[in-house]
Simulated assay, not measured.
Amino acid sequence: MTRAVVFGYSEVGVRCLRVLLRHGVQVDLVVTHQDDPAEHQWFGSVARLAAEYHIPVTCPADPNTDAIVDRVASLRPDFLFSFYYRHMLCERLLASATRGALNMHGSLLPKYRGRAPVNWAIVNGETETGASLHYMQVRPDAGPLVGQQAVPILIEDTALDVSMRVAAAAERLLDRCLPDLIAGRAPGVPLDLERGSYFGRRRPEDGRIQWHRPALAIHNLIRAVAPPFPGAFGEYGGQVLRVLGSRYLEQPARHPSQAPCLYIDGDDLQLDCCDGKQLTLTRAELGNTPLTASAFVARYGTTPLSLLTSNTRRAS
C-alpha cells in the first residue's frame, strides 16, 4: 500500500486528490487552508472531499511548525504531494517523505515559476501554458521534472477559463505519471532555470489599467484578472471605472487623435487605444453601477470621452 500526505487547495487540489484515491493511494492526512470569505470560491473544496473519504484534515496558518512537521513525520509517508497549496514547505517536511515530495505547478516549467502563473501568462500574452509535476526542493518550483501537460490559451480566454483547463491537465498528468511514481520508474529531469522565469504574487492593485498601453496589452490585463479575480480598473471623474470583460478584434480606432477614449458604437461600449486599435468592453462599471451603452449615452452623450483628464490617473 502506497501512503501519502497531501497539502492541497483549489481546483487542482480537488482533482489531484481524486486521482490519488482512484489509484488506491492511502492518504493519511490532508493539510489545506481555511476558506477566505472575501475570496470568491470558484473552485471545489479539498477539505470537503477529504471528509467524504474520512481522511483527517488540518488547516494550520503555518505548515512548518514543529507540531505539523512531527505529525507528518510520524505518518512515515511514501510521498508528500503539494497540489496548489499556498505556502512553501520547509526542508524537514520535504524530507519526511521516504520516496519523494512532489508539487503540481500551473505552468510549463521552468517558465512562470512562482505565484499566479496562469494570470501572469495571460498578462504577458502567452498562447500556451500547462501543468508540471516535479520533485520539490526548498527553492520554489526548481526541482527535477517528472512530466508536463500543455494547454492552449486562446485570445478571449479569461484566467478562469485557463485555470479550469490547467486543472484538467493536472488531473490527466497525475493520472498518467502516478503508476510510474508508485513503481519507482519516474526519475526526474533537472530543470534549466536559466531558460525559465520567476514571477511574484499578484495583488488587486496590479489590475490598474495603464490607458496609454496598446489595445492588446490592455485586453490581456482585463482577461487575466476578470471575475472571479478582482478585475481591471482605472478612474474617471473621481470614481472607479472597472473593466470586467473585453473583446479584441484588431479593429482600427475610430477616434485615434482622442485616444484613449470611450464611446458608443451601436450597442457596444468601445475603447480606442493609443496604438490606433480598439477594444470592445463587454462589461464595465463606473462607481459600482453597470456602464451599459444606454447608461453611457444618458450620462455622457455620444461624444468620445477622454480617459486622460485631470481627474484620471495615468500610470507611468
Rank of each mutant, 00 (worst) to 15 (best):
E156C: 05
D175I: 01
P152R: 14
L154T: 12
A116C: 15
R176P: 00
M164H: 12
A131Q: 08
G125T: 09
A168R: 11
L160V: 08
L181H: 05
N103F: 02
R92N: 11
T98N: 05
E128F: 03
L181N: 03
V162G: 06
P179S: 10
C90N: 14
T129Y: 00
L160A: 13
G106Q: 00
L173E: 06
V162R: 02
Y135L: 09
G130E: 10
R99M: 14
R139Y: 09
G143V: 05
V123A: 00
L93M: 15
P117D: 02
R113W: 05
C177Q: 13
I122C: 02
Q149G: 01
A101F: 02
V151P: 03
S107A: 15
A169I: 06
E171V: 06
T98H: 11
A121L: 01
V138M: 10
S96L: 08
P144V: 03
R139M: 12
A168I: 03
S132C: 10
A142T: 10
M164D: 11
P110Y: 12
P140H: 02
Y112T: 00
M88N: 05
V146Q: 01
G106A: 15
D161M: 07
T158F: 05
S96I: 04
V138Q: 13
V123S: 00
L109T: 09
I182D: 05
E91V: 09
S107I: 03
L108H: 07
